[in-house]
Simulated assay, not measured.
Amino acid sequence: MLQLASGSSLLAIAVDRFLRVRIPVTYKSTVTQKRSWMVVAICWFTAALLSFIPMFGWHNYNTWNGTTQANSTSFECRFFTASSRSYVVNFIFFGFFLPLLAVMTGLYCYIFLTTRRQLRLNIGAATESHTYYQKEQRLAASLVLVLGLFVVCWLPLFLMQTIKLYGPKIEVSSLFVHIGVLLSHVNLAVNPIVYAFRIPKIKEEFKKLYMRVYHDGQQH
């Protein structure tokens, strides 16, 4: 669910950046705080809905019915023990991850092409429009970095599971699978750090949150 929510949020951010460039004049009246909260709620609701599908039947039957028992002394990674590989590959990878990636790539390509064209038209002019598009281009570059990390951390795992599903005769080392699982989990932990370092507003909010928690701790 966290992975799906992360992907949905990245798409929502990409759409937000697209609207900033596409409709700069009416952006503030279109993207209101109420609508933003609605989008956040939709992202999490969609993630929960899609991630709970295995609980309604699309899972490894033997595992869910107790046939496969976990060894309490074993350190074997059991990330895919209960989840059906066909669900992970066909539904999550082909039906969610790849379309999401394609849409976001298209949106960011539009953003970079538009901002570059606008900056070229206003080259050498210290206008408000020039500053606006320059800022949007820098912010888009930071968000593309976040998107790149998302792809790098999740794509290896999805590709290995696709090979195991459609190429059963091809051997995939369990070590590589474990590294892929680790990368996918690391991505969720790294994202807030990348956001904080690359995006000034988020960095400022993190500082405020830290100071608030620090002062509350001092008072107690």
Rank of each mutant, 00 (worst) to 15 (best):
R35I: 06
A14Y: 05
V88L: 15
M55C: 02
Q69A: 10
C77N: 15
F91G: 02
R78Y: 11
T68C: 09
T30W: 13
Y87D: 05
L119G: 04
F112Q: 06
T26S: 11
T67P: 05
F112G: 05
M104Y: 06
R85I: 14
F112Y: 07
V89G: 04
F97N: 00
T26K: 11
W44A: 07
F93L: 11
I42P: 01
N90Q: 14
R120C: 04
A125Y: 09
T115D: 07
V103W: 04
F75E: 04
S51W: 03
S74I: 06
T63Q: 06
V15Q: 08
G57V: 11
F18S: 07
V103P: 07
P99C: 10
V21C: 09
L121R: 13
P24C: 00
T81A: 11
A82H: 01
R22W: 11
A48I: 14
S86T: 13
F80Y: 13
T30K: 15
D16Y: 11
F18Y: 15
C109E: 12
V15G: 01
T32F: 06
W64M: 13
F45I: 12
F112C: 01
V89D: 03
F97P: 00
V39A: 12
V103L: 13
K28F: 03
T105C: 13
N62I: 06
W64Y: 15
W44Y: 13
V103K: 03
Q118T: 03
T105F: 13
W64D: 09
L119H: 01
L98E: 07
I111T: 02
G124K: 05
A41F: 11
A48R: 00
K28H: 03
E76R: 15
T30F: 14
S129I: 05
V89P: 00
T63C: 10
V88N: 01
V25M: 03
L119P: 00
W58G: 03
A102Y: 10
I53T: 00
L101N: 00
A125W: 07
A48D: 03
C43V: 15
S29D: 12
S72T: 08
A14H: 04
E76N: 14
F45R: 06
T26F: 09
R85F: 09
S36H: 09
E128S: 14
L101K: 01
